[in-house]
Design a protein around this nucleic acid. Structure first.
Ligand SMILES: [Zn+2]
Ligand SMILES: [Zn+2]
Ligand SMILES: [Zn+2]
Ligand SMILES: [Zn+2]
Lengths: 688, 688
DNA sequence: AGGGGTCAAGGATAGT
DNA sequence: ACTATCCTTGACCCCT
């Protein structure tokens, strides 16, 4: 007792981490200490190690939204912003903004305006005074973890200063704001004020029919289509948090790892109840954890849909039948779609990747699964927005993607199928928690078109749905509904999905990938514009537009294409290990240098369609697909280094090599020659 | 103080912070104890808990002299060395020293040579089985414990376990230990137990005439010639700390920066009292700060002298006239001097560099000043050890550097001058505080031979003495001594110094530098062995030996040499001429370009410890001491162009060369390769 | 009290 | 130039 008193005293007297200063300090304090005291004996030896392994959840860089690597100078930031701040402070740099001091810093443009980046740093509270060396006190860490999992993405907007920056763009999408239209989220990316000034003149046909007093389809101020950035803390606290709170921390510790193992055991138990070692209590706890986890995730990633549902209900209540965008041109809708697709895809993939069990499978497998299930996932997720044969899906430019537009873009047949499924699904009247659980089911369920060559036997793909459904079952049995009442519709649901799948709705995914390049979302990039050609006339448009996740044309694409190994293995998705180099001086594995990387891909047959020697003896090689090489290099080099590695940059880097004899110029496009200093001809020879 | 300023001084301020923290803790602690004593009558219970919380005084890290935080792996070390040792053991690292395995580890340079740091760790007895005390024989251990109990004058107050490790070497120097001789402190450096066994047979002629019961010239157990290592904490608390303690913390913050500015203002005030803005209170505080600071420093760096003074007094009281080493050969004394010189020089330089005001001047200027004043400084510092025409200076191998030896080595004339000055100086009967203040005065006072080309007009060189003397004055006026009584002797003192200077005692400095290479002390290296040729016969020895800071030969060197610009620029403190390049187009001498400079230092043997070819044929070279290269380059380039040339900048400049073929990248740290455009392989080849 | 863990600061470096 | 990465260091914390 005295020890604990002393401990608490000590703790209080210590300076508390700037990082946590926003979130902690309140109710939880005493409670947690009690909890710790209680559970200390239990988990001391067993769980601690597991728990401690997990990295501290810093979330995103407060400055640029990159991945934060720690609390640097008092603020969770990425390595880049850390270094930038250090350099700035060290050299007492004076920066000046050439864009009117209003730049919004993000990962892509953070190097565009040093002034605003530095200002953002200061605003977020970075300072040399803020540094605190040493280990993070466990108590603080636990608190942070707990907070983190109660509302995983809420960290971002917590301190007021940062929310100013991040919500300002979405303010613009409010109709009430007078000099800005209710359009875009996409213009977030453009930070030149000049452009904003010109905005009205080029703005897309805004429905002026709506009276300002009608609140029916005003979006919440902080609505944004990009739900990864979305602050869902309010949602999660409004919803039934109270009955979930007691299974947060400990279950997180117990179950957050090795979920696949656990699922396997559970499947075992389901199939052979007698031979199983897992206890009922464990099973229940685990399933409760899954429910909680998915519920949290859906709060994070599905909040936008819920806002739109609210809007929908409002409109239905007010019997509004005119929707923004009714009078717009197909071109406008197209612009909206262009903006929407990357956001949606990115959102879906990020969401899926965080789901329990799915976060444990290999990235490669995940990639294939998402290739297959993206559309199903999207459809389920947006099903609540389909009501009474109308779609209330919104495009980022403020237009509504109504059924009429959908018909025009993806064809009536397809739309009909979708709407039927959505109607059926909505009739299930799932609760939020059940709804959240559907997502992993839809992703994991054994589908007909799941590529056969994938060796998923021992992953969750076949097994997870059963467990997940069981968790739904448990949930509903605790509610006022009979088992059957739910299970049948769910099974129907599965049928429906199968039907959808049968009717080729999954096919488009493959096609989309040709256009959107799904891979980039795995690496946090969102540069669609260059990949989607801007179309002038409507015929062309009809041919190439994907509807969110489909297109009329791709609908008709032959099934065989999906099954061919070529399409799924878009040849880019790499196992980094294959590219690691044993450093001779340090004796450690490291990422290759550029010329080493090129040597490696030239040696691997699998990349022969990308780059090849054209003269083995002289070390002359040629890139057949320069962009692919750049993409590969981007991945091998590490994702965060610079956001858009292009062939141009790569080629420039290669030309730098001219100077030191590692590379030589060689006639012909995309053609280079290894120099002696690359080791060519001395330490290695190309095999041929 | 702004963030920026704070950050620039980051490294320093961290140490200062630690210092402040420590001193604050000390103060608080002292106060706490006082409080305890006060409140004991009121509250009896609280005493124990408060008392127990006191940190154990571990003194300094045995490896790097940082503050030790405990006995780690068997040895009192700092956190850094603890972690370093842990990692080294854990990863089974193999290190290599690029400086000749002789690096002297201190807090500032401990990260420069991992090899020597690790060796030092091992040498100090760190081991994973630290509990068993590793390699220390039981016999020694018991003796050490016994000695520890017997000697009441022990300065370091350590825990028994740690003192075992650290005192074992010095135990050996005790005469009472029967199977070990009373020799050396220097053999501390040798850690092989085997060597210890063989010790008797190779030990240097120990005076066996001394009776074991005579304690008179037993050195304290922890005595070491390298006073940087010396723990003087006890001293500072024994001496009149009480009247200094109240001006510690705040003054440190207020005054530790911009001392030169302050001194200038004070000089202004002294000269034009009416126009001055500085308040009397400020002046007093500042001067008090200077006194305190210097007093602390002298506790750190002059503790060894004080120990020797105590020994001297003991011997005088016992009327001992036989001194260790009387029977030794000149060779033995030479060995002792060889070891002593680097320690003394390093100690003096480190001491000087930490003095207020002096720590603010340019390294270049500091270098020149030290070149000039090193001997004066040394003489003043050791004056207390000269008494009644005998010198009680000790050599590291336990021999006494008596006047007789001095006569033989540096000549009677010189010795006579020195002893006269010392006698005069000792007659001043300065207090410890006054004595400490003499040091900066002696360094800063305007001397005749201060190189004329130095533009010291606006530095402290001319001004500081006035202020410092004033502070002495203030001090003594507060004591029971009249102003005049002190001031006159001080001025006499100055006269004496001038006399010394006149009689060429500063000359040797220049000579020493040729042998000792003063520069390395500026960079924390101490590799004398390779620079001082080992001399066999006495004639040669007489010619080349420097006595601590003088030699017979140099004493006779013509005065003109000092004034010539050549002499002040020691081997490494560059003679720019050696680096000039004959420009082929203009036909004039010019400073070299960077790559030319690098080529030059690679060609000169004297810089082989700094940079070396690792592959002559291919022109690959490596910087062993990047900072030194940068420092050299800064000087060669001309110091006006950029004030802080760092290796970073230099390396960047080199990488620029990649682009035009003058340099190429080469794997490994600090490693580069000459490219064809540098002329390598065509117009020149490295000699080897 | 000390071994061991943690993680931010900072250094070095390759690439832009 | 600058940027972002990897890696080492060491201050601080936990736990026994
Ligand atoms: Zn960032
Ligand atoms: Zn800006
Ligand atoms: Zn240390
Ligand atoms: Zn070394």
């Amino acid at each position: 007792m005295t020890d604990d008193e002393h401990y608490v005293q000590k703790r209080k007297s210590r300076r508390i981490r700037t990082l946590i200063k926003t979130s902690v300090e309140d109710i939880v304090h005493d409670k947690q200490i009690e909890q710790i005291h209680h559970t200390r004996n239990i988990r001391r030896n067993s769980v601690n190690s597991l728990f401690d392994r997990r990295p501290f959840p810093f979330g995103h860089c407060r400055v640029c939204m990159d991945k934060a690597t720690g609390a640097h100078y008092g603020v969770p930031t990425c390595e880049g912003c850390k270094g930038f701040f250090k350099r700035s402070i060290l050299r007492k740099e004076k920066y000046r903004c050439y864009f009117g001091d209003g730049c919004i810093i993000n990962t892509d443009n953070r190097n565009r305006c040093k002034s605003c980046r530095f200002q953002k740093c200061l605003k977020e509270g970075m300072s040399v005074e803020g540094v605190r060396m040493g280990r993070i006190p466990k108590l603080v860490k636990e608190k942070a973890l707990a907070e983190h999992h109660l509302s995983s993405s809420s960290i971002e907007n917590e301190d007021p200063s940062s929310s100013i920056a991040s919500t300002s763009p979405s303010c613009r999408s409010s109709i009430n704001s007078n000099n800005l239209t209710s359009t875009d989220i996409n213009f977030e990316l453009i930070d030149e004020p000049l452009f904003l000034d010109d905005f009205e003149s080029i703005s897309i046909d805004t429905p002026s029919t709506t009276s300002p007093s009608s609140h029916s389809y005003i979006l919440p101020e902080n609505f944004t289509i990009d739900e990864i950035k979305h602050n869902s803390k309010e949602n999660s606290s409004v919803l039934n948090r109270s009955n979930l709170i007691n299974c947060t921390v400990n279950n997180e510790e117990n179950f957050s790892k090795n979920i696949i193992e656990r699922v396997k055991k559970l499947v075992m138990k389901l199939n052979y109840p007698m031979t199983c070692t897992i206890s009922d209590y464990e099973e229940l706890s685990f399933i409760r954890y899954l429910r909680k986890k998915m519920f949290d995730l859906s709060n994070t990633y599905d909040g936008g849909t819920r806002q739109l549902v609210e809007r929908m209900n409002n409109m239905i209540n007010h019997e509004i039948t005119e929707f923004p965008g009714d009078q717009s041109s197909l071109q406008d809708i197209w612009v909206g779609l262009t903006d929407a697709i990357p956001c949606h895809v990115k959102n879906l993939i990020t969401f899926a990747r965080e789901m329990p069990a799915i976060n444990e499978i290999e990235l490669y497998d995940f990639h294939k699964i998402m290739n297959n299930r993206l559309f199903d996932f999207w459809l389920i997720k947006h099903a609540p927005l389909i009501h009474n044969n109308q779609s209330y899906i919104m495009l980022p430019n403020g237009l509504q993607y109504t059924r009429q537009w959908m018909n025009k873009i993806i064809g009536e047949e397809m739309v009909e199928t979708m709407f039927e499924f959505a109607k059926k699904f909505n009739e299930l009247n799932l609760t939020q928690e059940e709804f959240a659980l559907i997502f992993p089911v839809i992703i994991c369920i054994k589908g007909i078109y799941l590529p056969l060559e994938l060796d998923f036997e021992d992953t969750i793909v076949y097994q997870s749905p059963e467990v997940l459904m069981r968790s739904i079952n448990m949930d509903t049995s605790s509610a006022h509904r009979s088992e059957f009442e739910l299970f049948d519709p769910i099974n129907d649901d599965m049928e429906a999905v199968s039907t959808l799948t049968d009717s080729d709705i999954t096919v488009p995914c493959d096609n989309i990938l040709d256009v959107i390049d799904i891979d980039q979302y795995f690496f946090g990039q969102c540069t669609v514009a260059s990949h989607i050609p801007i179309v002038e006339n409507q015929e062309k448009l009809q041919d190439t537009i994907p509807l969110c996740v489909s297109s009329k044309r791709s609908y008709k694409s032959p099934k065989s294409k999906i099954l061919s190994s070529d399409s799924c293995q878009s040849s880019k998705f790499i196992n980094i290990k294959k590219f690691l180099i044993l450093d001779e001086t340090t004796g450690r594995l490291r990422r290759p240098l550029l010329y080493e990387f090129i040597r490696l891909i030239l040696e691997k047959d699998e990349y022969s369609h990308i780059a090849e020697y054209i003269d083995h003896k002289r070390g002359i090689f040629k890139f057949h697909q320069p962009d692919q090489v750049a993409e590969l290099w981007k991945q091998v080099k590490g994702r965060n280094s610079d956001n858009d590695m292009t062939y141009d940059k790569l080629a420039r880097a290669l030309r730098y090599y001219y100077g030191n004899g590692i590379m030589h110029a060689s006639p012909g496009r995309f053609t280079f020659r290894f120099g002696p200093k690359s080791g060519f001809g001395t330490s290695w020879w190309p095999a041929y």
